[in-house]
Design a protein around this nucleic acid. Structure first.
Lengths: 129, 129
DNA sequence: TATCCTTCCTGTTGTGACTACAGGATCAAG
DNA sequence: CTTGATCCTGTAGTCACAACAGGAAGGATA
């Protein structure tokens, strides 16, 4: 049994974020103490840690919901996990490619800049298209 | 002289986004027709196109504001443009590195998945930590 | 017991950079 | 004169939180 502060420390999720996940229905609502404070079981803390690992892997919350639901499923877990993960990998790869192109373009832009100049060729280039 | 629709087509920025930029003070307010519609000069369309190129380069709007102000400055343009651009390049490189690590981790996760299985080792791994 | 600091509560607002309406007015063409 | 495209303002939604405001309760110390 843990307070929200302990659950936060043990899962690595910010307290405010834990309450946000609860509001959004990502994680189940924990019990409450006599004075109304949240009380987390070890299993509930484990769920929070799971969500944290998923988020660290970059899965959007919508995917995390599905992944959490799969935990209690008995059929085809692997199939669904693979589909979600491969979609996510494709997304990550696209983003890497886009950022690489951007890096190249920015490098070209900066190389236009020469120290001590007043009129900036890079700025001109951005402006002229 | 262009309507907002023409300005949108020529700059490549969505109409709603143009209005948003105006509200936020990123671009100056254009003149208005007798009936209250926005009327853009060629220079104002060029500013929009400049903003579009900056955004395509991934500069945040805060940077775009500075870059736009630099257009009218006469001193040290190049220095400031270089500082902003290099900060942005560093940011882009950090993001690429983070995404690469993510790609590797996701690859490892998916390799745990094997077709036809019911219990998913990848899911177990996410859960166990 | 009184005080004090920490932790907790709910509810609201802000972030970045838009996008998507709702509900209406105007314009241009046929 | 009607139709359809375009335009207007203003508001709310997106994602995944973070940062308050304003208060209540818990635990340690004097």
């Amino acid at each position: 049994m843990a307070t929200i502060g302990e659950a936060s420390r043990r899962s690595g999720i910010n307290i405010e974020t834990i309450r946000y996940y609860e509001r959004e229905g990502v994680v189940p609502r924990p019990g409450r103490s006599a004075s109304g404070r949240r009380v987390y079981t070890d299993d509930e803390v484990a769920v929070l840690a799971f969500v944290k690992r998923c988020r660290d892997m970059g899965f959007p919350l919508a995917d995390v919901r599905v992944l959490l639901a799969l935990r209690n499923a008995t059929d085809d877990q692997c199939d669904e996990v693979r589909v979600i993960s491969q979609r996510h990998i494709a997304d990550v790869r696209n983003r890497i490619a886009a950022l690489r192109r951007l890096e190249t373009a920015l490098g070209a832009l900066v190389s236009e800049c020469r120290q001590g100049r007043t009129a900036c060729p890079a700025l001109q280039e951005l402006f002229a298209g």
